[in-house]
Design a protein around this nucleic acid. Structure first.
Lengths: 182, 182
DNA sequence: TGCCGACATGTCATGAGTGACATATCGGAG
DNA sequence: CTCCGATATGTCACTCATGACATGTCGGCA
């Protein structure tokens, strides 16, 4: 049910159409909660049916501007303060790490070094975004800046871990077949 | 399609029944790729239909021991080395951060401090697991140890970030209504 | 004035994930 | 010998997510 609240959160800043929301979404929330266009439009209709948002203006090309209702604002605040966040973190890349023993130490090292590179690139990308954006325009941006900072720290930690883990593979390998020294 | 490969990965270590796999799953892979019992049993049947695993023994209570086939092993290795991992990270807790402006600085700080506490507890839990487990029994455990280490670093980084972010809320608040000094 | 890119909303089929429910048997403690 | 907890597998209804496809309009530039 998070997409629902993501849309409420965006509309809390002011009225917008599905098309507007989709664009904002892809540049911000999609990093932590991706959604497709079809999902977004469907959810907007459901939110309107439930009275959490309403159409306050209609423009050309069937454009509908949605505004959050009092009920919607109440639901948003309830969700933020009272609902315990879902802690589930699916991580396709980390799942593979469990099975690196099946592909041999060379492939294992290569895999981990690639992970390091990917996260170093991500850290860099987020750093660029952090520098090139004016964050002090509204609350959404001010708090969005905190999210970007979290992403940078995450990327940095993952990259460091992957470098460390790649180095550990050699140790694991040696212990498996103990050195004949002595 | 990751559950599929998660099961292949577990079976690469040796034959097991769905029931066995479910228990191992909940204590290890579920941290990065949760799955329900119904999903797991369904996927095992599909894997057998596709020839990636096969029933090699039947025991009491309808127990079926599955073994990975050569085809299954090939598919597992292909997935690890050739398939680019999905980088999608849904994060319910971080999504809320974008909208903390709507609940006011007091609630925002409380939210971030709670996040810090949750991640400190997680770091501690993972530390306990790391210490109390004998990791050097097989490849699955040896690499699983690396995953745990990653989790600890993640939890630590998140906790530090949340403490820092909670402190930043005061700054955001002050900038919004600039101090009347001078 | 004719065309094209951006605007704008929607449907549909498919698959993945969730949680409750159904069902049956084995083995050991009392 | 009886009961119960653990073993063991499965179905079902429902929701969420994905990606492709469908459809139409507005506005400005050439």
């Amino acid at each position: 049910m998070s997409l629902r609240h993501a849309l409420l959160g965006l509309l809390a800043d002011g009225p917008a159409s599905g098309y507007d929301l989709l664009k904002v979404f892809d540049r911000s929330l999609a990093f932590v909660w991706p959604a497709t266009q079809s999902q977004l439009y469907g959810e907007l209709n459901r939110l309107a049916d439930d009275g959490l948002i309403e159409v306050t203006n209609e423009g050309p090309r069937g454009r509908k501007d949605y505004s959050i209702t009092d009920q919607g604002r109440a639901e948003l605040e309830h969700w933020i303060t009272d609902v315990e966040p879902d802690r589930i973190r699916r991580n396709d890349a980390m799942l593979r790490v469990f099975f690196l023993g099946t592909v041999g130490p060379e492939h294992a090292k290569a895999y981990l070094e690639r992970e390091a590179a990917v996260h170093e690139a991500l850290e860099e990308l987020l750093g660029t975004i952090a520098r090139d954006t004016d964050w002090d325009t509204n609350d959404f941006n001010r708090y969005g800046h905190l999210v970007i900072e979290s992403g940078q720290r995450y990327a940095h930690a993952q990259a460091e871990w992957a470098r460390w883990a790649a180095a550990r593979v050699d140790d694991l390998d040696k212990n498996e077949a103990p050195a004949p020294t002595h």
